[in-house]
């Protein structure tokens, strides 16, 4: 939302990056210097700047890319949603790279080389994100296995408890219980 960048860098306070890391402030300022120093900078980015694409597939990829890159100077927004200058510049950069025929992976590399993995809203599958990507399926799998085990155990228990001798024993216990209640 537009309200998040009243400050030129959209920084509301030292906690604007969650952990309040100075590193990210530096990165953001560097980024601003890197992309924002050109002569064509409006005071405010234009969220709806129209772009031409040489192929419809490019537009699709462009939309997918800008919707999966984080605007580093915003609270928690993609560069597709932010009118911060940095986001505007990154959108322009993504558009340029797609039109140059670069792949999604190359664009992601370009971004992470400058801003770190933090810029990707869709974390790459690496050793430290394995749990993140496979966790959900692990949850379902473990849940279903537990469920099946429980149901089987129940079935056995019920079969066992309905056998004759057990029933007799249960009845005897019940009667004893009844006696105890009266006393």
């Amino acid at each position: 939302m537009s309200a998040s960048n009243a400050h030129p860098f959209g920084l509301k306070g030292p906690r604007a990056f969650g952990a309040g890391s100075i590193l990210f402030e530096i990165v953001a300022i560097l980024a601003f210097a890197l992309f924002g120093a050109g002569p064509v900078i409006a005071t405010q980015g234009d969220l709806f700047e129209p772009r031409d694409f040489s192929f419809p597939a490019h537009e699709e990829r462009y939309l997918r890319m800008i919707n999966s890159l984080r605007c580093l100077v915003c609270q928690n927004q993609t560069i597709a949603e932010s009118d911060a200058d940095l986001a505007t510049d990154l959108r322009r950069e993504v558009h340029r790279m797609i039109e140059q025929g670069r792949s999604d992976e190359e664009i992601a590399d370009f971004m992470t080389a400058r801003f770190g993995e933090f810029v990707l809203y869709r974390p790459r599958l690496r050793s430290d994100t394995i749990l993140l990507w496979f966790g959900p399926f692990l949850f379902v799998g473990a849940g279903l296995v537990l469920l099946v085990l429980r149901l089987r155990k129940r079935k056995d228990a019920l079969r066992w408890s309905t056998s004759g001798s057990v029933r007799k024993r249960a009845r005897r216990l019940l009667e004893e219980g009844g006696v105890r209640k009266k006393t």
Binding site: A19, T78, F118, V119, Y121, L132, F137
Partner: peptide
């Protein structure tokens, strides 16, 4: 390290679930 988990992740895992 710092990573971001956002809409593309949730859409990718939530729909199959």
């Amino acid at each position: 390290g710092k990573i971001s988990v956002g809409p593309p992740y949730f859409n990718a895992v939530f729909i199959p679930l």
